[in-house]
């Protein structure tokens, strides 16, 4: 067995994760934020490992 197997398994796993997520919570492009945060006038609101819960 080579890394071809494990690398392929990783990619399959990622696409399965995305697929299952899309089935439950599909994104809505009409609610997308402005292209770039800088200069958008919109407060940053994404989750981050350094942030306490808000």
């Amino acid at each position: 067995m080579t890394r071809r197997l494990t690398a392929s398994l990783t990619m399959v796993g990622i696409f399965v994760l995305i697929g299952l997520d899309l089935a439950g919570d599909p994104p809505n492009p009409y609610r997308a934020p402005p292209f770039i945060a800088l200069g958008s006038g919109v407060a940053a609101s994404g989750g981050f490992c350094g942030a306490l819960p808000d």
């Binding site: 997520d21 899309l22 994104p27 808000d54």
Partner: peptide
């Protein structure tokens, strides 16, 4: 159970910044 976390749990991973860069890092390495 915080408001921000609940909102992110109910929205797509494709709208979470760290998830997107994580997907990108894995795909880029592949």
């Amino acid at each position: 159970s915080a408001a921000g976390s609940v909102e992110r749990l109910n929205t797509s991973l494709l709208t979470d910044y760290t998830s997107l860069t994580n997907f990108g890092m894995i795909a880029g390495a592949f």
